[in-house]
Design a protein around this nucleic acid. Sequence first.
RNA 1: GCCGAUGUGGCGAAAUGGCAGACGCAACGGACUUAAAAUCCGUUGGGCUUUAACGGCCCGUGCCGGUUCGAGUCCGGCCAUCGGCACCA
Length: 867
Amino acid sequence: MNDRRKPHPFDRIEPKWQARWDERRQFHAPNPGEAGFDPARPKYYVLDMFPYPSGAGLHVGHPEGYTATDIVARYKRFCGFNVLHPMGWDAFGLPAEQYAIRTGQHPEITTRENIARFKTQLKRIGFSYDWEREITTTDPDYFRWTQWIFLQIYNSWLNPETQRAEPISTYKDNDPDSVRLAYVAEVPVNWCAELGTVLANEEVIDGKSEVGGFPVVRRPMRQWMLRITAFAERLIDELEPLDWPVGIKLLQRNWIGKSVGAEVRYAVADRDEVITVFTTRPDTLYGGTFLVLAPENPLVDRLTTNEQRAAVENYRAQISAKSDLERTELAKEKSGVFSGAFAINPVNEKRIPIWIADYVLMGYGTGAIGGVPAHDERDLEFARKFGLPIVEVVEPANGESPTGFFGEGMAINSPLIDGLPTTQAKERITDWLEERGAGRRRINYKLRDWLFSRQRYWGEPFPIVWENGRHRSLGENELPLVPPPLDDFKPTGSGEPPLARARDWVRYSETATRELNTMPQWAGSCWYYLRFCDPRNPERFVGVEAERYWMNPSPKTVAQGTKPSTLASNSFAPGGVDLYVGGTEHAVLHLLYARFWHKVLFDLGHLSTNEPFQRLVNQGIILGEDGRKMSKRWGNVIDPLDVIADYGADAFRCYEMFMGPLEQMKPWSMAGVEGLARFLARVWRLMMEENQAGEWILSSALVATGPDKAQLKVMHATIKKVTEDIEALSFNTAIAQMMIFVNAFTAVEARPVAALRLLLILLNPFAPHLASELWESLGEKFPLSPNEITDQPWPEYEPEFLVEDEIEIVLQVNGKVRDRMIVPLEATNAELEELARKNERVREFIDGKTVRKVVVIPKKLVNVVAN
RNA sequence: GCCGAUGUGGCGAAAUGGCAGACGCAACGGACUUAAAAUCCGUUGGGCUUUAACGGCCCGUGCCGGUUCGAGUCCGGCCAUCGGCACCA
């Protein structure tokens, strides 16, 4: 590789332009009110999911999305937009803390080093970030506002009347702590002993921690929770108008998991107790032959009869000993125990047994269900195992057996609703329940409240103190609350967070102590896109004017016709980041959490839009050359800097985009990079040649004369294709078109400078160093004022150059291509048919047959149908 | 099990229902060179066919069927791979 002559001097020109861009503050986007701000320009906010600066550095997967957004950013600047294109660091996180535990090196040092490495890599790729807006979530100037936002959440509640978050002061009942959007609860949590911390459900995969793969067990602990469930409905509804991939919307909807149904109250026989269950099929109530409680349900203690107590306790002990993993692994076989108690089915007054089984989850619904074995797969399995009665109450339309039919049909054996189809039966029976106070309509969500505390050192401390067993918030003037210095970052092992070691820090006053938990890593990434709008503001998390400017659609963009929303809601205010690109791994959690925080801040009047990200695109994973996922284990990880050393940043960027559609998973190919390097070298040699001393000088083939007709056609076809493809993020085909352009101009001896200049503008977003350098070189001999590529407008194509005088018409017989002919553009359909019928090849194939029909598609083809 | 995405040459991939395989990689041939590299020009889905020559014919977009003058594209049914969820009542 090294002994090969470099095809063009990228190693010289790339650092040159990168330095120049820095000196000129080329990509700094001025805010309203700042010097250089031009209110006439529309804005465009294009954002990458900012990385966690790991010790391993970037691999070629990261820059795929970054290159895509960089192309869009540079393109939009040519189009006259004021472009916000920032980058920063999601720097709190477990790896730095674990490294600190192993080595004693403070996570701050590790983090700083990792950031430096990442930044070097990103700069070497030539991304046009506004580095003056760089932010780091571990910086006190940043996390003071993370803490401030937490206090906003802590000090508000969701008013059920308005369905909007309001200051807690508007809550008039006597226990505000019971409705705060941030609250403390004793909840069964995922405790990971190895990591010494609790984890969110989402961070637990198959009963093991997502980080490290350590075992996780359920255990009740006192934790901070965020009331995201209060926003479940809005998180579903307001997803609708967003320009996101349908698959991601679906993933979010499924995660929230809305179920519409009814709550049914069962009186317990001979006891003053009531069991409430949730069902989506109230129409099957007559088929309910038993109730099942989750083992953790507190009712179990009160209902179990003395005869059954030993058996029940034994069962509960078995269940609690199981990890979540075992519980799901053993899910194939139903287990359970009879409580000894009975309930009364409200629709028919029948006594039905109350069972306890772990297939009923405490965390969903009411932790109790009505067993309808005929029409629920799980209940059927359970009933068969324990010999419980099966009553059929829904008849399928196709005449199959009702038992084991789980779909919708017609109600039978149900006096109140017999003969009704399921939908109506549900309505009727729910009305009946509501009239008698035996139940009511109810919507349930799979989404749980967000477990927000972690027992870690390397995270944002909670701005909370405890006094007399109660929590209260710090004042805003006490922020940022910086973590205390520590030497020992290890978990204490008891579940008490490492911050407990900082005795002096913990003591807030004579009578008050600080909260010891820290926030999860998600916290910093929930609002970073807002801070980018105004990253140095010392007064506010984001300035009012900056937020309004960057987060709302430009008037021009709106005029261009964003579709009016179908959503008629008082909480609807369209806008947000114009383009957000990142991996699918954040399809659910990060996006859901960020949307939640955004809505709280919007409701409280701190923001002007109700959603953070208007348009979302997921880039696909880049696999190793062996087709496997890139990982240290397979030794197939590729470092961008190695690629750049051999082929240059421009070739790297172009290859990343040429590999295939952005959203698709695709394997890396070094030979492919070489191909793109060759393409760029061909561009270089269109304009440059070597003199006898081996120096690059302007090519003698360059001419000041205008391009000819054929050349104009290629030029305008390329403008059209590249422009449309960038808008559609189809970068691979945009590059293919530029290759066609280059191939066309390689073949000619006299190359019009105007055509080459056009190419350089179109190529600039993809290969900015090369395009800038060549543009500058052309200016030496062919002066232009102003002679700066970035001062050029994006070219517009003229359709007149694309139309031809003559066009090729395909001739088909029975749908098969048999010949083609060149005809004048203005040829009529009748003339085309006439020519087709006379065509020798066509006649050959219709010979001896009868022409049934002739299909003429103007400017395209003639199809003669004959048999 | 449920939901979603994807299936096109040796490889990465293109194709508003209208010439399948643009563009690139790899391979092969040629020019330049003492030679190689680099560069430039050409060939390259499969099969069949004495085509003097420009060639010609058939098949081909995971499989089966349908709609249509015409299907990679639309519809129905399968199969395979990948991803997500997974006792959510």
